[in-house]
Amino acid sequence: MTAVDNLWFLATEARQAAEQVYHRFADRYDDFVEFRTTRTVSRDRFRTVAERIEAQGLPYGAHTLAYRPTGELLLVEQAAINTWVLPGGEVEPDESVREGARRELGEEAGIDVTYDGLGVLGEVRFRSDGHETWGVLPIFEGEADSTDLAVCDPDGEITDARWFDELPENTRDRSVLQEWRKKRFGE
């Protein structure tokens, strides 16, 4: 007996969920930077992200652009992949998207922010073995309430947190963050 592969159906359901989530953010917020990126992933990884997208519209959860009034941006280090990223992660079922971003910020950098709104709204497309779907990456912006950093990541993925005036070369989505800084601070 041959098992039926439902990956095409999962990809379709995920796309529909992403479309709804994207429009909710776009209708609620204005004046944010938009970007689109495409990633080719393994079949197993495609299934994982499609399941996350189907459940919440979000393949990577929610993130925060925490900044100081002087323009420095907070990044956290994922040492396993030698990359500086924005703090953030998966949203728990009982949280709003912004509550998840706030919780992740606290875990990964030990600070809180006063949120201004949505800084960036991303569309992340995934391809694998003839299948394609996409999900939403919401990145909220907020001014830091404190600047003393402390990494308390329960997942152990984040090994450092720092404020940057100049973004390191190994910053994920560096060009998007530079575009946001230019818009926000006129740099």
Rank of each mutant, 00 (worst) to 15 (best):
R181N: 14
V176Y: 06
W180M: 09
H63N: 14
R47F: 14
T12D: 13
G71P: 13
G100P: 07
E90I: 00
R162E: 09
R184N: 09
S96H: 06
P59L: 09
I158W: 00
T12P: 02
D5W: 02
L10V: 14
H23E: 12
G122K: 03
D145V: 13
A3T: 01
Q20W: 12
L167F: 04
R103I: 03
I111H: 00
T171D: 08
D116M: 04
Y22V: 01
Q16G: 07
Q78P: 07
A11N: 05
R15I: 00
A150P: 04
I81E: 06
G110T: 06
W163H: 14
P154W: 06
R68G: 08
D155V: 00
L65V: 14
A66P: 10
E99L: 03
G156D: 00
K183I: 06
Y29N: 15
Q78T: 11
A101P: 13
D116T: 05
S175E: 14
D129A: 08
W163D: 14
G71W: 06
E95T: 11
A11V: 12
S42F: 01
R103H: 03
Y60C: 01
D44C: 08
V76Y: 14
R181W: 01
Y115H: 13
T64E: 10
F35K: 00
A80N: 03
H23R: 12
R43I: 07
L75C: 04
T114S: 07
T12G: 05
G119D: 06
L58E: 11
L118Q: 11
K182T: 12
D160G: 01
R52F: 15
G119K: 14
Q78N: 11
G135L: 08
A26D: 13
F140N: 09
D44A: 14
T83H: 06
A11C: 13
G110R: 13
L118T: 07
I139P: 02
R172L: 08
L74M: 02
M1L: 11
R102K: 07
T70K: 14
A150K: 14
G142T: 06
G61K: 07
V49I: 14
R47I: 13
I111N: 13
G135C: 09
A80S: 08
A55T: 03
E169P: 05
A150F: 04
E99C: 02
R127W: 08
D160Y: 04
A18G: 00
F32D: 10
D5I: 15
F46D: 12
G156F: 01
T114P: 10
F35V: 05
L86A: 12
E157S: 02
T83D: 09
G61T: 06
L105G: 09
V21F: 15
L65C: 13
A80E: 00
G186P: 15
A11W: 12
Y115Q: 09
G61E: 07
G110C: 13
E51W: 05
E108W: 11
A50W: 14
R28C: 07
D27C: 04
L121M: 09
D160N: 12
L137I: 08
G130D: 04
T70R: 13
V113M: 06
K182I: 04
I111V: 00
G100M: 02
R24E: 15
A62Q: 02
T159C: 05
E141A: 03
G88I: 03
E107V: 03
G61F: 03
N82P: 10
E90L: 12
L105P: 12
V176A: 06
N82C: 11
E34I: 01
E90K: 11
K183Y: 15
